[in-house]
Write a protein that binds this DNA or RNA. Sequence first.
DNA 1: ACCTGAACACCGTTCAAGT
DNA 2: ACCTGAACACCGTTCAAGT
Lengths: 184, 184
Amino acid sequence: MRADAQRNRARILDVARTVIEEQGTQASLRDIARRAEVGMGTLYRHFATREELLEALLGGRFDRLAAHAAALEASHPPAEALTEWLRAFAEGAATYRGLAASMIATLEDGRSSLHASCVAMRDAGGRLLARAQQAGRIRPDVDGTDLFALFSALASIADVAPSIGLRHEHLFDVVMEGLVSRAR
Amino acid sequence: MRADAQRNRARILDVARTVIEEQGTQASLRDIARRAEVGMGTLYRHFATREELLEALLGGRFDRLAAHAAALEASHPPAEALTEWLRAFAEGAATYRGLAASMIATLEDGRSSLHASCVAMRDAGGRLLARAQQAGRIRPDVDGTDLFALFSALASIADVAPSIGLRHEHLFDVVMEGLVSRAR
DNA sequence: ACCTGAACACCGTTCAAGT
DNA sequence: ACCTGAACACCGTTCAAGT
């Protein structure tokens, strides 16, 4: 990649992080290009879709989250590992306003650039889930997709109603208890 | 109201119902005006905000839902009344794509035209909840707002991922079990 | 190769002008 | 009283023209 291109790409990512932090995942791309002092075409050349931009911003974080699942599997007993991971997952889904909703949508949209990361995360969670189910600690009739949907939806509440978001830990606990009930 | 105004209002509501059914609560107001064969100003005169339009479309339904809570309180035992009502509530929140998210947001936005209906529904649910808690059937550390948020969030999953929406009843059951656990 | 910015087709919202 | 539709300030996306 040419040096100026590389510099532009970095500038865009840098500005995008700030703007999306301010305005959420639906932030104006025009605004990002403007503040990065770059033409619209340049933004589109580097990131053909909004999802590609989000992937560049979040891909690393998501990969680490999937890896974290494997680590927890080795270090913690089944139920604790799952709970701990779901907590980290919910935190990740809350990185930017609007992200949680995008993540659920992306799970069934194979064309989205976020699709791969989300499927990987769902599967990582699914493995922790299966382990906890085999240990009889989680009800057997839920799968990784259920988990992903439930906790993303939970995270999305804070996006749309910040004050209710303060109850997040509490609501997390309620849903968690729902998973525990009817185990075995 | 003048006869032509009344006719216009009815036309707008009629078309809005169709368009919002197609495109969700974020449907283009311009499109609604166009298909109702009405100037933009006319639409704005009758419904100054998008929320006012939604209120006109859904207010009746929400009022009935609040009334339904009182009826259930008289006819059913505490836990059954609550479960039954929450089922109806979730159905109402799923009337239009995007509505569930609007409802959570509106709960803490006093200026929204949907605010009154949503508060009324939350309180109606809150009364059924308190009754079930007094009967020792629901954990005591949740309130009406928690309930509203949890089940709206649940409904919003189907908005953004239709196929996961097919699991709605199942996820409903999981959350319900979470409410039951730690009762008394 | 890469960048720019105007062009196009859309929005929501307002408001002067009409009846 | 009420209606119309143009005007304004925004979008996202594309693409001819430049370096």
